[in-house]
């Protein structure tokens, strides 16, 4: 099958492009996002996050993995600028800041639900972020179409969300997040509501999209397997209070395909991540 041929090509692609040991010094010295000593305490005293430190490097695929209530979604929302935090700082070393000290966040966000407008066509749903940025519909038609093509939905531009399956809706949501050509794609358990088969397929397609769109991905999940399969790095978090307990690089080449799931190295990574997660749960 086609996977075989892709698998063959894998070895030829230098790992350096995606791993942290990349020789490109600029990528290492300037992270895309730098979260320093982030704490978030709700008014009722619940500590959602305690002293979170995390650098997200350019072009990496980092997963935040942890049990529910560990603040992984909260952390993601903070990066997107949705909601405030109590202490700490989030810096965007490579972005420009406006006169009020607000960074120009070039992010796309994919929520757990597809969150599409039911009254609008697939095209209009994907066009929304550009419309909100006052961009003329005609001027960006090609752009919207090309991102729809990227997620494999170019034939469904005129469909309404209700005519699509759950997986297709999620693809529209991903297209909407990508249409602004963000540097950072934030994904909050995007596949959690989908069935296993659709999930697997979308995981593969996501890796493909990530490579083509050349962006950085922050991916929140509670699935060990999903995070190992997708990520260049996994950050494991624990709950009460939400904090980082450790992180593991998944030093494996891309493109990855389903045969990767059968390799002993994949299993080894999963065991490693699981034991770290176990420690996080019991601490």
């Amino acid at each position: 099958m086609q996977m075989q041929s892709q698998g063959g090509a894998v070895l030829a692609i230098p790992q350096a492009l995606v791993t942290q040991d990349a020789p490109e010094a600029s990528a290492r010295t300037k992270p895309l996002v730098r979260m320093q000593h982030i704490s978030k305490v709700y008014s009722n005293g619940t500590v959602a996050l305690r002293n979170l430190n995390l650098d997200v490097e350019q072009n990496e695929f980092v997963s935040l993995l942890g049990p529910s209530g560990c603040g992984k979604s909260t952390a993601l929302r903070l990066v997107a600028g949705l909601g405030g935090f109590t202490r700490g700082a989030i810096d965007w070393p490579t972005s420009t800041y406006d006169a009020y000290g607000k960074p120009e966040r070039e992010v796309g966000f994919v929520f757990q639900e597809a969150t599409l407008m039911p009254w609008a066509t697939v095209f209009d749903n994907v066009y929304l972020p550009l419309r909100l940025k006052n961009m003329n519909r005609k001027a960006v038609t090609e752009r919207v179409k090309s991102v729809l093509e990227l997620v494999g939905l170019d034939k469904f531009a005129d469909s309404y969300p209700r005519e699509l399956s759950g997986g297709m809706k999620m693809r529209v949501s991903i297209a909407r997040a990508l249409v602004t050509q963000p540097k950072l794609l934030l994904m909050d358990e995007p596949f959690a509501a989908l069935d296993e088969i659709t999930r697997t397929k979308l995981s593969n397609d996501l890796l493909d999209i990530w490579r083509k769109a050349q962006c950085t991905v922050m991916f929140v999940t509670h699935s060990v397997f999903e995070s190992v399969y997708l990520s260049t790095r996994i950050v494991v978090m624990a709950a009460r209070p939400g904090r980082i307990v450790g992180e593991l690089p998944i030093d494996e080449p891309y493109p990855r395909d389903p045969s990767f799931r059968m390799t002993p190295r994949y299993s080894a990574h999963c065991r490693e991540v699981s034991s770290l997660l176990d420690k996080a749960m019991n601490s």
């Binding site: 969150t115 407008m117 909100l132």
Partner: peptide
């Protein structure tokens, strides 16, 4: 929809645009 409000907030939609499009 609350999720859609989040989407609009993410892209810094003005009150008028939220009204008109959401």
């Amino acid at each position: 929809d609350h999720g859609l409000i989040n989407v609009f907030d993410l892209y810094g939609a003005s009150r008028w645009k939220k009204l008109r499009y959401l």
